[in-house]
Nucleic acid binder design. Structure first.
Length: 324
DNA sequence: AATATGACCAACCGCTGTTCT
DNA sequence: GAGAACAGCGGTTGGTCATAT
């Protein structure tokens, strides 16, 4: 089913998206939601297939994306998660608010893999390369299935050193089970009346996977300096905005839930790059997206104090891949 | 200055699983 | 139950940019 049938029937645009196309898609989705993706292009006036629209929205136009360079903490987390989950990019992305699976996949393939190899670690198995060489199968090649790291069901490889990580985590099965999964504590899907209104458009359509995760896994977020919620310091507005912009909209304004969509965080993205000296990664929509999304709504709430809805965020953020 | 090379990343492709008819 | 439609995922490709020669 790779390519939708519509793509064959019509002459559809491919390749990079123009600002005009982005604008059309943003306007449509902010106004109506995406609903059925296959109908989006027609309704939005785009000569693209629904699949392409979906990808563009998820990977680039969503207002809750963090963008910018990955921090060391994030890289650490990706490595840790990859050691357990393998190339399950969507599941890894679910643990990194504001990051997309595509972004993480690209980072892994272009940067982290290389770094691990340089430090003598096999990026596929997370074992020392010397160990891999010693136990190399006679065929010499690793088949596709074995390339991925072990799964939660498999036995983990022996704990190895993590040259990239200051405090090497015990990369063991138990470690991650304890950290992420609790087979005794099922998180029930939220009742429909509990669905907060700031969730992405079709939250209520999301399927609830039977994955059972422990609530303690929120520890991962709230003890991580990057992911631990907005800083309380009033002097750290930029960082706070950065956090807000990168957390999938799981926050609420002090005067009520902030609906999905525009945040102050979006407004501040270019400033953040300046302040933090990060790579100047300003794409056209980093600058103009807020205006497309309704500049007035930014300006109408310049001093809103956001607070994390920790309970909801904790519950939702521990559900793999539901909101990517 | 021109060309080659490598890195990065947005987007596409093809597949699987789920839902709908 | 079967097939179509759809959403989502992971692998791969190709364009762009930066750097080296």
């Amino acid at each position: 089913m790779g390519r939708h049938s519509c793509c064959y029937k019509q002459k559809l645009r491919k390749g990079l998206w123009s600002p005009e196309e982005d604008e059309k898609l943003i306007r449509h989705i902010t106004k109506f939601g995406h609903g059925c993706w296959s109908s989006v292009p027609k309704l939005a006036g785009l000569e693209r297939c629904g699949k392409s629209c979906r990808l563009r929205w998820i990977n680039y136009l969503r207002p809750d994306l963090k963008r910018g360079t990955f921090s060391q903490q994030e890289e650490k987390l990706i490595i840790e998660l990859h050691a357990v989950l393998g190339n399950k990019w969507s599941q890894i992305a679910a643990q990194l608010p504001g990051r997309t699976d595509n972004e993480i996949k690209n980072l892994w393939n272009s940067s982290i893999k290389k770094k691990l190899k340089q430090r003598g670690i096999d990026p596929n198995t997370h074992k020392p390369l010397s160990e891999i060489d010693d136990h190399k199968a006679p065929s010499g090649s690793i088949d596709k299935t074995s390339q991925s790291s072990y799964t939660l069901e498999d036995k983990p490889p022996p704990s190895t050193s993590y040259p990239l990580i200051d405090d090497p985590p015990p990369a063991t099965h138990e470690f991650f089970l304890n950290r992420f999964v609790n087979h005794n504590t099922a998180i029930k899907p939220p009742d429909s009346h509990q669905v907060p209104e700031f969730l992405p458009f079709d939250y209520t359509q999301q399927k609830h996977q039977p994955q059972q995760l422990q609530t303690e896994s929120a520890d991962l977020f709230f003890t991580n300096p990057i992911l631990s919620g907005p800083p309380r310091s009033t002097t750290d507005n930029l960082t706070q905005n950065n956090w807000l912009s990168g957390n999938n909209g799981f926050f609420q304004a002090a005067n009520g839930y902030q609906p999905f969509g525009l945040t102050d965080g979006m407004k501040s993205q270019t400033q953040i790059h300046d302040v933090e000296g990060e790579q100047d990664y300003i794409k056209w929509n980093d600058q103009y997206l807020p205006f497309l999304m309704g500049k007035s709504s930014i300006e109408s709430k310049p001093d809103v104090n956001f607070e994390v809805n920790h309970e909801v965020y904790q519950r939702i953020s521990t559900s793999y891949g539901h909101f990517s």
